[in-house]
Computed example of a mutant assay.
Amino acid sequence: MRSAATVKLPTLDPGALPVARPRLPRADDILPYLRRIDDARWYSNFGPLLTELELRLASRFTDGAVAATVVNATQALTLTLQAMDLPAGSLVATPSWTFVATAHAIAQAGLVPWFLDVDHASQMLHPAQVRDQLGRAPGQVSAVLPVAAHGAMPDIEAWLAFREETGLAVLLDAAAAFDAARDARLPTVVSLHATKVLGIGEGGFLVTDDAALAFRVRRMTTYGFNGTREAQIAGTNAKLSEYTAAVGLAALDQWPADRLRFFLAAQHTRIGLAMTPSVVPQLGWGSDWVTSVCVVRLPNGAAQAATETLMAHGVETRRWWGRGCHQDAAFARYPRTALPITERLAQSVIGLPFAIDLARDDVDRVVRALRATPGIA
């Protein structure tokens, strides 16, 4: 099996167009919140700023939503799986077509990733696919962890029906879906990493209408404490500080305006890509929802050639999900079904440069480089 590390690409010059240019709130926007920290002299351990941040995050979701912040989304996934009290060593059905954090979280929770294939159109796991495979599972299946592909949301109603029908726990990895995620009936983890559409540096949160689940996760982020110095359950230190909450509150203040700017940048990109009909953005991207990346599908097998051509033209790209988790050495021993669609997507999906302030000239530069790739028109 050839490792991705053996693929030789042209060296990117210093003037290259980067694939991502994250932007967090400026110091002046954070300063009023820092002054509140100075006045309160409360720096961590669920202070007033973090409490406000969690309430504002929860308010974006359906009634009854509770948000529990965690030091990052990977830990949020891990702790939520642990809080679900699933049988140790049981299988968690999940797509291989995802970022490795999904599989790492399952393994760190003491569970076993069971890699399933995804739907070709949505790039996501579908309940019907899981139902079809349950009878052939190589062990006890206790949960399913679908993934919101690059910020697009799956069919929540279908997953709720699946959970009701099978009795299996379902946890949604919506790391990149801050904008589109709004329904707390399915426990959902969202990332607030600096590279995300709403970033705070490092961070993430679980949102759910199951207050008891959120409470268990909260206790696990603070050594199993609950109002005393006695560890009532096994836990860790995975809470956010007031300083991180200050960045989050400033980011939420700017979100309505930033969201419009992301939409505008996405529309410019979609208009530019209209000149290359064989390059297809995700359904709804830049019209129904936004995220911090531009993920496109190319003609079958064209991803490597496009990557090489773009880099030769000074345009950086990224294969955000590589060749699928099952191809990584860390996950090679875990069970999986046949994954033909995942392997096909790995050869036809790439990330193009995108940012909140992406200029039209930059879009034109990307399009010109794409059109120079053999087989793309």
Rank of each mutant, 00 (worst) to 15 (best):
Val7Cys: 03
Lys8Ile: 13
Lys8Leu: 11
Lys8Asn: 05
Pro10Trp: 13
Asp13Met: 14
Asp13Ile: 09
Pro14Ile: 15
Pro14Trp: 09
Gly15Asn: 15
Leu17Glu: 07
Leu17Tyr: 04
Leu17Gly: 03
Pro18Asp: 11
Arg21Ile: 00
Arg23Phe: 00
Arg23Ser: 10
Pro25Cys: 12
Pro25Val: 04
Arg26Glu: 15
Asp28Ile: 14
Asp28Trp: 07
Ile30Gln: 10
Ile30Phe: 03
Leu31Trp: 14
Pro32Thr: 12
Arg36Phe: 01
Arg36Gly: 00
Ile37Thr: 04
Ile37Cys: 02
Asp38Lys: 10
Ala40Ser: 15
Ala40Glu: 13
Arg41Tyr: 01
Arg41Met: 14
Trp42Ile: 14
Tyr43Cys: 01
Tyr43Ile: 02
Ser44Pro: 00
Phe46Tyr: 14
Phe46Ile: 05
Pro48Ala: 14
Pro48Lys: 12
Leu49Lys: 10
Leu49Gly: 04
Thr51Ser: 11
Glu52Val: 00
Leu53Val: 02
Leu57Glu: 05
Ala58Ile: 05
Ala58Pro: 00
Ala58Ser: 05
Ser59Gln: 12
Phe61Ser: 09
Phe61Gln: 10
Phe61Tyr: 15
Thr62Tyr: 10
Val70Cys: 11
Val70Leu: 13
Asn72Ala: 01
Thr74Ser: 13
Thr74Lys: 15
Gln75Asn: 13
Ala76Phe: 03
Ala76Arg: 14
Leu77Pro: 05
Thr78Asp: 07
Leu79Met: 15
Thr80Trp: 05
Thr80Asn: 08
Leu81Glu: 08
Leu81Ile: 12
Leu81Ser: 09
Gln82Ile: 05
Ala83Glu: 08
Leu86Asn: 10
Ala88Val: 12
Ala88Gly: 04
Gly89Asp: 04
Gly89Thr: 02
Ser90Tyr: 03
Leu91Tyr: 04
Leu91Val: 03
Val92Asn: 04
Thr94Val: 12
Pro95Ser: 11
Trp97Ala: 07
Phe99Ser: 09
Val100Glu: 14
Val100Arg: 11
Ala101Asn: 13
Ala101Phe: 07
Thr102Pro: 04
His104Pro: 00
Ala105Arg: 06
Ile106Glu: 06
Gly110Trp: 05
Leu111Lys: 05
Leu111Gln: 02
Val112Trp: 03
Val112Ala: 02
Phe115Arg: 03
Leu116Arg: 05
Leu116Thr: 02
Leu116Tyr: 06
Leu116Val: 07
Asp117Thr: 07
His120Asp: 15
Ala121Gly: 01
Ala121Leu: 11
Gln123Ser: 12
Met124Glu: 06
Leu125Asn: 06
Leu125His: 08
Pro127Trp: 08
Ala128His: 09
Val130Asp: 01
Arg131Val: 02
Asp132Trp: 03
Asp132Pro: 00
Gln133Tyr: 05
Leu134Phe: 06
Leu134Pro: 02
Gly135Cys: 07
Gly135Pro: 01
Gly135Asp: 14
Arg136Ile: 00
Arg136Thr: 04
Arg136Gly: 01
Ala137Leu: 06
Pro138Asp: 13
Gln140Arg: 15
Gln140Val: 01
Gln140Lys: 11
Val141Met: 11
Val141Leu: 13
Ser142Met: 14
Ala143Pro: 04
Val144Cys: 13
Leu145Met: 14
Pro146Ser: 13
Pro146Ala: 10
Val147His: 10
Val147Cys: 12
Ala148Asp: 02
